[in-house]
Design a protein around this nucleic acid. Structure first.
Lengths: 189, 189
DNA sequence: GTCTATACGCGGATAGAC
DNA sequence: GTCTATCCGCGTATAGAC
């Protein structure tokens, strides 16, 4: 032990995780720009200066709240390739897709920051492009997987970022049929 | 005339249009957040306070620089429906799509502001959904048009906002073939 | 080591003199 | 119509108390 008092370190860890959980919630709910360091500090009931002391910067804190693997897309990917288009749309429309949706929207809106843009590309590659490309046969599997990711991103965009009234008003079944079919066209042409 | 000096009004109009053109360029190049009122004022060679005095707020100025109709998508829409998917992708990949691309990216990144979100929906409806829906036959033309808009938005997203390296590295022809085909699947199923 | 208090510089926005 | 001075909130940094 390099330290006499255990209480200091323990308190520091508690503070740190309080900030992290408040930040995760506020960034997901309000996005990077709207959630301020001072609001996060207030929600965590700590001094604003501690947020910077523990995480270096607001941007760095934000990036640590992003967890692309938290969405458990594994089950969706594991199913038959012939219906993957439908299942992808179905997953993101449903409650299970909430975490991944919020991460994506927050990343997009803050993507004018270089490090955030890098994380957006990294997350997309990890969650979509690589798993999908590895299952594709035929020409240019990686490009087709990246284009599928673009399609999914476009739907999330319209539905949860712009909140397009036409798509929102439609029934889930129709969206799954139509958009899932368009995605499938790139998976099994 | 409610005013004695004609020179004052003329000077005001010149100032106003200098601000507007500087703002249009800077918002398109750097986005809403990165372009500050002070840099816009410097580029227009006017006092920062005048920017607010003439346009009310930075957000209001930004919305006035958005011109979704400036892209002249009319020619693309006018062609045969059977190849519209390809032509849409081709247009946005090329130089002619620059203005519309920049508008879209800027709107997306600032869409956490309610008025910006409204303008994003309005522009999308005006430029994509309405023109496309009016040409579709079959079931649910408006929904299919909105989903086409989502697909196009997803491509713009990946290519010009995230700058996806996989898609950027691919040849235009491949992207036009593959993504254009997926869009076409919603236009003429 | 952890926290509190305080302050710096920059952002958008406003009031009032000219 | 224009400019000067100023305000408030933001992200961030630091000195010093515990």
């Amino acid at each position: 032990m390099t330290q006499g008092h255990t209480t200091s370190r323990a308190a520091g860890q508690a503070t740190r995780s309080a900030i992290l959980s408040a930040a995760t919630r506020l960034f997901a709910e309000h996005g990077f720009n709207q959630a301020s360091v001072r609001t996060i500090a207030a929600a965590a009931e700590v001094d604003p200066a501690l947020v910077i002391r523990h995480f270096g910067s607001k941007e760095s804190l934000f990036l640590q709240t992003i967890d692309p693997m938290g969405g458990e897309l594994g089950e969706v990917m594991a199913g038959p390739l012939e219906t993957l288009g439908r299942r992808l749309v179905e997953h993101f429309l449903g409650k299970a897709g909430t975490s991944l949706r919020q991460n994506f929207v927050a990343l997009i809106q803050a993507s004018d920051r270089p490090h955030v843009k890098d994380e957006l590309i990294r997350s997309t590659g990890l969650v979509f492009v690589q798993p999908i490309a590895s299952r594709l046969s035929g020409d240019r599997p990686e490009l087709r997987a990246a284009l599928v990711a673009a399609q999914v991103g476009g739907l999330l965009n319209s539905l949860f970022l712009a909140e397009d009234p036409v798509i929102a008003a439609a029934g889930d079944e129709d969206v799954i049929d139509l958009y899932g079919g368009a995605i499938q066209h790139l998976l099994t042409p």
